[in-house]
Amino acid sequence: MVTEHRFSGRIAGFGTSSGTRIVVGIWAESPLGPFTDVMLEDASGHRTLLAPSDEIAEFVSSTYSFDEVRVVPITTRRVDGGLAVSAGDLSVRIRVGGLSTLGRLLRVVPSLVATHPAWLRVIDPVASRLVAGVHTAGSAGNGRQEFYGVTLIRALDDAVVTRGGESLGAMAPLHPPVTFGFGSAPPAPSIVDVVTTIRE
């Protein structure tokens, strides 16, 4: 029997001049309720998950690969021009820009099609050629299959990140790709509207 979990929300991904790459998931609807989680990979390749509860930490860390998992208080709020996320000793503030060229193209695909696993499996080879490191379908942890259905892409104009009160540097491309799972966020700093489907 196949169990399907759907997560609807946004993913912001970007790099920093210190070499740390950050992926923030802001989930409005999920089997675990609304939540935000943060994935970080530093210049040495150390991968950290910041999650708001033990239940969420267990599910996410059994789907993706991390070297460290921390359960910390996480808050997300709208600020002028973007979003602010606080996760333990990490502070992230992003300024959201306009639609990317690919984001405009995605708008012509009906949402029900753009988020359907069958469609995402078919277009995966094309997606990986169009955007380096990106995949729309693949294998996740514990025998799970995962599908990313992106419906909108906006550029990030800026990101200010501190950890433990220390700046992680200016926003930069997300390069090299992160290695939490089978695919990465796009190299260009961006925030996407997405439906993630996980089958097990």
Rank of each mutant, 00 (worst) to 15 (best):
V24C: 11
H175Y: 03
L168H: 07
G33P: 09
G183F: 10
G9H: 03
S91Y: 03
E29V: 05
R107F: 00
T16A: 07
S17A: 15
H116N: 15
T179S: 05
R77Q: 14
T197S: 11
H5L: 13
V23K: 10
T36H: 02
D157L: 08
R121C: 01
F7Q: 00
I191K: 07
S18T: 11
V38S: 03
A57W: 01
R129E: 12
V109S: 09
P117Y: 00
P73F: 06
S30Y: 02
A172R: 15
F59Q: 08
E200W: 05
F35I: 13
L49W: 02
V60H: 04
E4V: 03
A51V: 05
T162C: 11
D89T: 12
V60M: 10
L40E: 10
S184M: 04
V96F: 08
D37Q: 12
G133C: 02
V161F: 10
T179A: 04
L32V: 02
S100V: 04
F180H: 08
T3W: 07
S86D: 11
L130Q: 03
I11G: 11
A127M: 15
V92Q: 02
L32H: 02
R6S: 14
W27L: 15
G138Y: 01
V24K: 04
L174N: 03
L32S: 01
V79H: 03
V108K: 04
G141L: 03
T63I: 07
F59L: 14
Y148H: 15
S184N: 05
V194L: 14
Y64A: 02
G164Y: 07
T3R: 14
A127H: 05
V85Q: 13
R93N: 13
D158R: 14
L112D: 11
V60G: 04
F59A: 13
V60P: 00
H5R: 13
T101C: 01
R163M: 11
F66Q: 12
R104P: 00
R6P: 00
L152E: 14
A155I: 00
L40P: 02
S44W: 02
R95A: 14
S18Y: 04
H5N: 12
G97I: 10
L152I: 00
V113K: 07
R107G: 02
F7T: 00
S100P: 09
A137E: 03
V79R: 03
I198Q: 05
R144L: 01
A114V: 09
V108H: 04
F14P: 09
S167T: 15
P176V: 06
A132K: 12
E68V: 05
V192Y: 07
L106F: 08
H46Y: 01
R163Q: 08
V160N: 06
R93D: 12
V79P: 03
E58C: 08
A137N: 06
